[in-house]
């Protein structure tokens, strides 16, 4: 308790009655409890993943695929899944980041108070709420069933891009809004065209913030499973071509291994979860470091 909420003794105002004090303390206790309650699942998840995942955290896991490895066999690894995840996420970023950054530029620099800007802004919000499985179904309906392509890593990347765009738009928008207006005006006053102002003055100023946002978005889509089930399907073999044939990914690898009743498979699933969480936490941490190293306004 700070001195703010409890009047000092002898101040002449009288002290807080016991009933009110008890109530105040009870609520304080409940609020602390709520926070501790949130820590329980977080620590429990991390603990179980680390303990169970450590069993199979060996070189084999990173060097071999599941090709010709049955559920009950020891050995086997997630090499194919790690390759798949990296390729899919790279393609996703290549699709989503330009669209998202340009959309944010439109919203901040061009839209003004126009109606189109408001509509786009609203639908970006709506897009954040799209269930990931619906994004998968959409790509299934469009790319696979209508256009006629087969399951591929690229189809998965399309679905992930739909989930990634709104997060990157929002993050970029926040950062662009933080760029001081003086910079824009100074640039215009020097006769610099608008697009050069945006590309060489505004974007560099906001760059660290945008990079942070992109990294957090990558970390988020990397763990998405549902859309991938419908778009990349399953394979136990290494497929280095993301444009042809089913591909594996870490999340679908975990899903596949966890649905097998053999303990050796469950162990592989845990190790897959450990690797996935490791990569995601690393990205999160890096994003925080980038964000801390230089605030957007100073540069």
């Amino acid at each position: 308790m700070t001195s703010l909420s409890t009047p000092r003794k002898g101040s002449g105002l009288g002290s807080v009655s016991t009933g009110r004090k008890v109530k105040d303390r009870t609520v304080q206790g409940l609020v602390y409890l709520a926070f501790l309650l949130a820590l329980v699942p977080l620590l429990s998840v991390l603990w179980t993943v680390v303990v169970n995942g450590a069993k199979r955290l060996d070189p084999t896991f990173f060097q071999f695929s599941m090709n010709a490895v049955a559920g009950k066999d020891p050995g086997g690894g997630a090499y194919h899944a790690i390759i798949g995840t990296l390729q899919q996420v790279a393609i996703t970023s290549a699709i989503a980041v330009p669209i998202a950054v340009l959309t944010a530029i439109y919203l901040v620099e061009y839209a003004g108070n126009g109606r189109l800007g408001k509509v786009i802004s609203f639908f970006v919000d709506v897009m954040t709420g799209i269930p990931s499985i619906v994004a998968g179904l959409f790509v299934l309906a469009l790319w696979l069933l209508t256009v006629g392509f087969g399951f591929s890593g690229f189809a998965g990347a399309l679905a992930l891009a739909i989930l990634m765009i709104p997060t990157v738009v929002r993050a970029t928008e926040e950062m662009l809004k933080l760029v001081p207006n003086d910079l824009r005006e100074a640039s215009y006053a020097l006769g610099v065209p608008r697009w050069r102002t945006i590309c060489f003055v505004i974007l560099p100023t906001a760059m660290t913030g945008i990079v942070t946002g992109v990294m957090l978005a990558v970390a988020r889509v990397m763990g998405e499973t549902a859309p991938l089930l419908l778009t990349i399907f399953f394979t136990k073999a290494i497929n280095t071509n993301p444009f042809e044939g089913p591909q594996a990914s870490l999340p679908t690898f975990i899903w596949e291994q966890a649905s097998d009743p053999n303990q050796t498979s469950i162990d592989r699933a845990w190790t897959g979860a450990l690797v996935l969480i490791g990569i995601i936490m690393l990205l999160n941490l890096l994003a925080r470091l980038v964000a801390r190293r230089s605030a957007p306004v100073r540069r």
């Binding site: 949130a38 699942p41 977080l42 429990s44 998840v45 179980t48 993943v49 169970n52 970390a219 988020r220 990397m222 763990g223 998405e224 499973t225 549902a226 999340p251 975990i254 899903w255 966890a258 469950i266 699933a269 845990w270 979860a273 996935l276 969480i277 995601i280 936490m281 999160n284």
Partner: peptide
């Protein structure tokens, strides 16, 4: 950080542990 944990991991944790 609770939000950063992917849902597949919550699923595994929920099905096997919780």
């Amino acid at each position: 950080l609770l939000a950063a944990v992917p849902s597949i991991v919550y699923g595994l944790w929920g099905a096997v542990f919780l």
